[in-house]
Design a protein around this nucleic acid. Structure first.
Lengths: 213, 213, 213, 213
DNA sequence: AATGAATGAGTGTTCATTCAT
DNA sequence: CATGAATGAACACTCATTCAT
């Protein structure tokens, strides 16, 4: 398993200030990149949106790629946190899986701009940055693999997609982001529910469990 | 339903030569864009790859956006053709749906570079180009909606995902392209089969039909 | 006195066809240049306006400069012809001068687009073309010098501007073209009359002659 | 009366530096444009002549049109200043008018390159720039209208050219610039004097005043 | 640590001119 | 003689990055 983070060089020593500023930069840059796309957006745009000057910006990052990396890390962490938060404190493996799926689907719909940004611009990352971001995503997929495995061991009959289960459940909900141009006008929560049901059924889950609370 | 094509201006009159050259350009540009990404690739790169001079290139297109549009149209048409070809001459609705899914999944795996390109760069298209390309995709989704409906009417019990069925079956296989960084080393045809089975099961299809020839 | 014409190379032999085509080109180019300016207009624009293809155009001229030269010759010849026509058959020297001035002022107002074009783009001509065009203009100024001299000899007291008379009378009316942005809304013929009276008075012409028919 | 200035965007904040640099740019660009003409001159030429890099140039202007506008404003302001300076502190209306005419004629002769540039390239200005520059010129013409009116009220009999007087006196001296190709070899001050006398006589001014100091 | 002006390589696009058919 | 596709040099403009203050 490779490291899910990458070191970013800085001109400034104060570590806590670096953390603060980088969060500020990531937040602003995400906004700008969502609006204009990574390549179209300029460093000037990002600096302005973050309330910094160009020069100051470069005290906390070394290149435009660094900014894109910060954004990826940040946005990815957000939807992961959504899922973790949803299952925190839950014990029943079946309920945990179902809750995780629901939280993930919801995040994909609500954070559609962020997700679209990730899927569109990951390829624009430099080699090292991409490696780190994909490692982060891989950990997330592994997390779901664990949840599925636990549910299976718990007696939830799920023999569907023995090899791809974790991939599938972490990919299909992305549809709510990437097909937003089609789904803009459908009922959001209903779509989430339909998707989760589809996933569970595809996994081979019995009907009476699919629709539980 | 809006038009799935857009007119591209040209300086050249001979229509058949335009067709020929544009195919040549689309093919070369797809290669270049897959390698470097749309924004990083230069017009010079495309011209060179197509064996044309910059000036000649601009006799057949009017802007870089035109090239991206040509590429989108071309690549989209290819996987659509794969699917159509797979079901040509088939009569049984259930078999047609299954064959269409298999062909689509296969195309997504084999044409992974093309598909990734589409998903990454559609947002870089100009307004009109994007409209046309999405209309083309929408027609494809509608095609699957028809196939599903026919199978249902034919008695294939499929009450899963009543509203999103066509979206789901045209999106999940895209995973074979966009998750290639993870799936590079799995058995391709097996993955396709697993995916198709997952989809049919999710749609509520009985097990004995899922695994038919 | 240097030649008021310049030879333009051609790929075509038939002299009468050359004359014909070049007239056609000059007329079309004048239209295009008036609309867009010489530098902004393209050879394509000119060819289209003339109903020729680019290739054919180049059978009758050798460069864009040739076209500008043709236009200058043509437009200059037109206002000169206006003046000549106005005094053709007149015998009285004072009446001839007055009629020439009136015709010239009128031409400057009515052909304002042509005149503005000449004054704006003469500097864009190549060395040889400019020389020829200025020689043509110089002949015109000399013509007026002759008219003034004749009127003086005839007893019209005109001792004003002994050295610059011909320059002045051939320049001031140009105002009706170059100040069109200000004079667009004044009464045209009245302005012409006022200008001519101003010129005659400035030349020292007695009031009773200034206002003659 | 519309505004005789137009705002030019800048990437730089220090206002005094902007003033300084723009003056430097206008001066250098005027030189380059006089030599090669606006369209033939490149941004590189201008930057080089101004001792700046291309990038730096664009920190102070936004487009080539901005440069042409700066040049127009600057050159127009110069000859206007010449006239104002010549009549500063003079009280007698007739003397003021005569002095203004002499100063203007002199400026037209001495600044012939600038004036020719203005007359050749005003049409190349963008809509807004042209509007501003013509407003500036219009103010100048109105200034002369005021001087003439004052002289008339003061008893200087000047009933010639009741409607066009200000236009005429601000246009005819331009001849010293635009006909320089003919007048290069005549005595400059004598030509100015002859021109001024012609104008005053044309306005209906009595001979004894025309030749005053 | 913050500022913001300077840099210059690089980009999409245009167009006068040529020339094979 | 007409056609119209090919050419490629050139141009205006952008922007990530640096660095003196």
């Amino acid at each position: 398993m490779s490291a899910a983070t990458r070191v970013i060089g800085a001109q400034v020593k104060d570590e806590s200030r670096i953390q603060e500023r980088r969060a500020q930069i990531a937040e602003a840059a995400a906004r700008v990149f969502r609006d204009k796309g990574f390549h179209t957006a300029t460093i000037r745009d990002v600096a302005e949106a973050a309330g910094l000057t160009q020069g100051t910006l470069y005290n906390y990052i070394r290149s435009k790629d660094d900014i894109l990396y910060l954004v990826h890390q940040d946005l990815t962490a957000r939807y992961i946190a959504d899922v973790e938060q949803a299952i925190a404190g839950m014990a029943d493996p079946r309920a945990r899986l179902r809750a995780a799926l629901r939280a993930f689907a919801r995040a994909m719909r609500e954070r559609h701009g962020d997700i679209a940004l990730i899927y569109q611009e990951t390829h624009a990352l430099g080699r090292e940055s991409r490696r780190a971001v994909l490692a982060q995503t891989e950990n997330f997929i592994a997390r779901f693999a664990g949840l599925i495995e636990a549910a299976r061991r718990d007696g939830m009959a799920m023999d569907g997609a023995p090899n791809l289960a974790a991939d599938i459940v972490t990919f299909l909900p992305v549809m709510l982001s990437l097909r937003r141009w089609r789904l803009r006008h459908v009922d959001g929560p209903a779509a989430e529910e339909e998707l989760v049901a589809f996933l569970l059924r595809g996994l081979g889950c019995p009907e009476e469990i699919i629709h539980g609370a």
